[in-house]
């Protein structure tokens, strides 16, 4: 089976074949031409007590993988990595969707309930990528929310001190 994967800004091609006793997994970075193949014995990749025990090149990892749609998060050794995985059917599906707008969107929404501590921007203002938009307090922590790309502020829906619910629209962009 063929997959395209993206993690940490790096694109990969992956192939996988299941044999009776093992997995054969090929990894290729997008810009490279050579495949790097790994034969993983099923004995070395086992589901034990719902976690996965994976012995890779004699290093023992206890792994948990959470898959939601195309988003896979792999947890191990206190680390985690989010990996987007598309098989060719999904790639087809994505390409049929109307162009662009896969990332970002026209609104800044609250990811969790919290309180708006300070709004830094005004309606009509041009904001460059990385500039702070507002500070929101959630879970006793102040989180500065920055612009992910260059935008123009259309409407601001909240004021300093407002309490907001998860998913609430905070700022709309033009």
């Amino acid at each position: 089976m063929y997959f395209e994967a993206e993690t940490n800004g790096q694109n990969y091609s992956l192939t996988i074949r299941e044999d009776r006793e093992s997995w054969r997994v090929g990894i290729k970075k997008q810009e490279q031409t050579d495949w790097d193949y790994h034969n993983v014995s099923k004995n070395d990749y086992q589901r034990l007590d719902q976690a996965i025990s994976f012995i890779f090149e004699n290093s023992s990892y206890l792994i948990d993988v959470v898959g939601e749609g195309t988003d896979y998060t792999v947890y191990t050794r206190g680390s985690y990595r989010k990996i987007n995985i598309f098989n060719d059917e999904m790639i087809l599906h994505e390409s049929l969707k109307s162009g662009g707008q896969l990332k970002g969107g026209n609104n800044l929404t609250a990811g969790m309930p919290g309180k708006i501590v300070k709004v830094f921007v005004k309606e009509g203002q041009e904001v460059a990528e990385g500039e702070p938009l507002l500070i929101m307090e959630a879970m006793k922590m102040e989180n500065e929310m920055r612009s992910s790309h260059d935008v123009v502020i259309d409407k601001i829906h909240v004021n300093d001190g407002d309490t907001v619910e998860s998913g609430e629209n905070l700022i709309s962009f033009k």
Binding site: A5, V25, I27, V40, F54, I63, V65, R81, I85
Partner: peptide, 10 residues
């Protein structure tokens, strides 16, 4: 390790 595990699970 991340990639192989994700590939097998996917």
């Amino acid at each position: 390790v991340f990639l192989i595990s994700a590939a097998i699970e996917a």
